[in-house]
Design a protein around this nucleic acid. Structure first.
Lengths: 111, 111
DNA sequence: AACGCATATCGTATATCGACGATAGGCAAT
DNA sequence: ATTGCCTATCGTCGATATACGATATGCGTT
């Protein structure tokens, strides 16, 4: 049976040295994608993109989660830089960090 | 101090009803982004994109991880559909699922 | 100063991730 | 059939994610 050998060659057409992707780059990418790696955070981001900005309380109302849970997700989104929170009196106004979002889009698009 | 009230209005310019993003859509997005939410998986994907295809053993060699760990990451990538594995004799030839990758890119780009 | 509201943080419980070594399975060659 | 190689799965462990209620914090108002 020569099949396996022939197919192996057909399968792996390139034989150049494997270049290890930059570790820092991979970690950057992983950090940003991880921010969106939960449905609740995806929905929060979508919400903010629809509104240009949003009070924290409004987000909580729209989510089937406890206030503290939403706050934790917002914290994660802030830590990754995708979202900014601006204190406004007793409330907090959240909005998308457009630069970070652009970076994410660029990273994914250039994959 | 009228400042807080005025800024609150300036901050939240849109007052339309918040539309909850489609839950299924959010889960879809989260699933795909989660696949890339780990540096090792990002590097594997990058490796495969560079080569059009790659034997499993080659991936293991390039990663500072045990074979079983790499296998687990590959399993995750397969489950999310980003990667396909084609059995070729005693080896397995992995390659990117271009459709899934296109879907991911589209989802992110349309964010 | 005291209160009320909005948000963050704490503490905790459960579930899942991520890593590894050990082992099982599949395939080709002998 | 047996051997040897490659890959997947199992079992386990520590670390982390995720959820919640309870509590603390910050700010404006009274």
């Amino acid at each position: 049976m020569v099949r396996s050998k022939a197919e192996a060659q057909k399968c792996c057409t390139t034989n150049e040295k494997l270049s290890l992707p930059d570790v820092a780059w991979a970690e950057d990418m992983a950090k940003l994608t991880w921010a969106l790696a939960h449905p609740a955070r995806v929905r929060i981001v979508r919400l903010l993109l629809n509104r240009t900005s949003c009070m924290c309380g409004e987000i909580v109302e729209e989510m089937p989660l406890a206030q503290s849970t939403v706050s934790q997700h917002l914290k994660i989104l802030k830590e990754t830089g995708l979202v900014q929170g601006e204190i406004d009196g007793p409330r907090v106004c959240y909005c998308i960090n457009k630069q970070a979002m652009a970076k994410l889009k660029k990273l994914i698009a250039n994959l």
